[in-house]
């Protein structure tokens, strides 16, 4: 019974969202606002039971680890983001967070720059490495703006533009595929779980 009811609610909300394809309407806006509300309503108690209770309440109040009051206060400072006069206080936890992000910079450099460079410097022994070499060099030349893109140099940078266009095309093709997949998922739900037409 619960499954039937939940499927009806989910199907109705799906149709409400799809109704936007015709034109904007109150059903669409209702479903949109409900999604935001439900997401927050679901997340708050989950974070409370999985984060606040085990990592703040229990260690401080039950186990006496009072040093945790310091990071807890630092976290509470985020709330001052919503006040005009004291919003500057929220910069301290943000600064702390940024410091932690900084810890990842050397590792990011390794994975995103050094390893990628190493792989771009392989011997050109097949057509794929030749294409990668050409693409890398011509795109780098395109982004070198201290020399006008004219003459022979301009021809090279034009090849770089073509490589980028192919890249954007591949990315866009994947995006179309992704959006169609999401529609397929919803229609599979409507036809299968809701109407029972797919066995």
């Amino acid at each position: 019974m619960f499954e039937i009811l939940s499927n009806i609610v989910a199907a109705l909300l799906t149709l409400f969202i799809f109704s936007f394809l015709y034109k904007d309407n109150p059903f669409y806006r209702f479903a949109e606002h409900l999604l935001v509300g439900v997401t927050m309503g679901y997340a708050i108690p989950l974070v409370y039971t999985n984060a606040f209770i085990p990592f703040v309440y229990q260690p401080i109040f039950l186990e006496g680890q009072y040093w945790l009051i310091i990071p807890s206060i630092l976290g509470i400072l985020y709330i001052f983001r919503f006040t005009k006069n004291l919003s500057w206080l929220s910069r301290y936890p943000i600064a702390f967070g940024m410091g932690i992000v900084g810890m990842g910079v050397p590792m990011s450099m390794h994975s995103s720059v050094l390893v990628q460079m190493r792989n771009a410097m392989r011997p050109i022994d097949n057509i794929n490495t030749l294409i990668i070499f050409l693409g890398t060099v011509t795109i780098l030349l395109y982004f070198y703006f201290s020399k006008p893109h004219k003459g022979l140099y301009g021809k090279f940078t034009n090849i770089g533009i073509w490589f980028m266009m192919v890249g954007f095309g591949a990315s866009f093709g994947y995006t179309v595929m992704a959006r169609i997949s999401l529609l397929i998922g919803r229609i599979q739900f409507l036809l299968g779980d809701f109407l029972g037409l797919i066995k």
Binding site: M107, S108, H110, S171, Y174
Partner: peptide, 30 residues
């Protein structure tokens, strides 16, 4: 960044098609 670079763990991805193009450089570099 953290599990592979720091500890050498093997990482694989199951991503949406939108994100696939972003991940190909990491696939190509092993």
């Amino acid at each position: 960044t953290y599990a592979r670079v720091r500890f050498g763990a093997n990482v694989a991805a199951g991503v949406t098609a939108v994100m696939a193009a972003d991940n190909y450089p990491y696939l190509q570099s092993g």
